[in-house]
């Protein structure tokens, strides 16, 4: 879900930049893209970060100003290892964040204030994992099963009727999942891991998604809306600020002597998004240069 959700953000930002279809680049001046620039940047994202794909979405929702097969970008099944609140505590403890203010006092976290888990040490990337493995042999598997778990919460259990079905499959070659639960277990380590994929969306009240969004943004820039290309509700980043924020990022880069390139726009954009939704591991772009150095 988060995926969709995130995509949606990227998408909406894009749309906003595109609603007045630009032919002249306003990338550096206003932090916005023309349609062609968006396609170029999207192609670049897909090739450098292949977990992202272009999709065409619902035929009825297609926008004529975008190619049919490049309506929006999406990445699915992205893990969300903990809630945003815990990340923020960590930021504060680490003192590592950079808060940039704009005139409206909408503070947002600068991109290099990455959550600790995104730093390079692989072992640190998943603080809860070790505990999981120790606590129960097959628990890891349950993480993903568990995501879908909430969907049944309010639904009457239909298990009564299946007894007669005799669907007992005593198969020694099937790995037994020993840890399947319908609610979040008390174990804090497990509680932290969500994966955003479709089945969770429904179950999670869409509003709960806001738990995975930085609190600075939860009620301001991030809202729950219809997805422009897909059915259902998704968290959305309010588009009107994207240009301004992107402009700021670009200015910061330029002040450091880096010449931003249009095809890297979405990489920058994901950095911005990573600050809004710090818990979700979808920003695979940090290994790439964001522009060419002018030096």
């Amino acid at each position: 879900m988060v995926l969709t959700q995130k995509i949606h953000e990227a998408f909406k930002g894009t749309v906003e930049r595109i609603t007045s279809p630009r032919t002249v680049s306003a990338f550096k001046e206003k932090g916005v893209l023309s349609i062609n620039e968006f396609i170029v940047a999207g192609d670049n994202l897909v090739s450098k970060c292949p977990t992202w794909s272009w999709e065409s979405g619902e035929p009825s929702k297609r926008k004529s100003y975008l190619p049919q097969d490049k309506q929006f970008l999406i990445t699915r099944n992205v893990p969300c290892l903990r809630r945003a609140a815990s990340i923020e505590e960590e930021y504060e403890a680490a003192g590592g964040e950079v808060l940039l203010d704009n005139e409206d006092n909408d503070g947002w976290l600068a991109t290099h204030g990455k959550p600790k888990e995104n730093k390079h040490d692989e072992d640190e990337e998943l603080p809860s994992m070790e505990t999981l493995e120790i606590s129960k042999k097959n628990t890891i598997q349950s993480i993903s099963s568990y995501f879908g778990g909430e969907e049944e919460e309010e639904i009457p259990d239909m298990a009564e009727f299946d007894e007669a079905d005799n669907l007992v499959e005593n198969d020694p070659a099937t790995l037994q999942t020993t840890y399947l639960v319908a609610h979040e277990p008390d174990d804090d380590n497990i509680l932290r891991t969500r994966t955003y994929d479709v089945s969770i969306t429904m179950l999670l009240q869409p509003e709960l998604v806001l738990e995975d969004v930085s609190q600075d943004h939860a009620r301001k820039t991030v809202t729950i809306e219809d997805h422009p290309h897909l059915p259902g509700k998704h968290a959305s980043v309010h588009p009107c600020r994207h240009g301004a924020v992107m402009k700021k990022i670009i200015d910061v880069l330029m002040s450091r002597g880096v010449e931003p390139e249009v095809d890297k726009y979405l990489f920058l954009f994901l950095k911005f998004m990573a600050s809004v939704i710090p818990t979700i591991e979808y920003d695979y772009t940090m290994d790439f240069d964001l522009g060419s150095s002018s030096s």
């Binding site: 099963s145 568990y146 879908g148 778990g149 909430e150 969907e151 049944e152 309010e154 639904i155 009457p156 259990d157 239909m158 298990a159 299946d162 079905d165 669907l167 007992v168 499959e169 198969d171 099937t174 999942t177 020993t178 840890y179 399947l180 639960v181 319908a182 089945s199 429904m202 179950l203 009240q205 869409p206 059915p231 259902g232 509700k233």
Partner: peptide, 22 residues
């Protein structure tokens, strides 16, 4: 052959989802 998926309670039983909200 085997292969029925367990539901979220770890049972061999169906899943159910309500989309009334949307």
């Amino acid at each position: 052959a085997v292969g029925w998926e367990l539901n979220n309670r770890g049972k061999k039983a169906p899943r159910c989802i309500s989309l009334a909200k949307t």
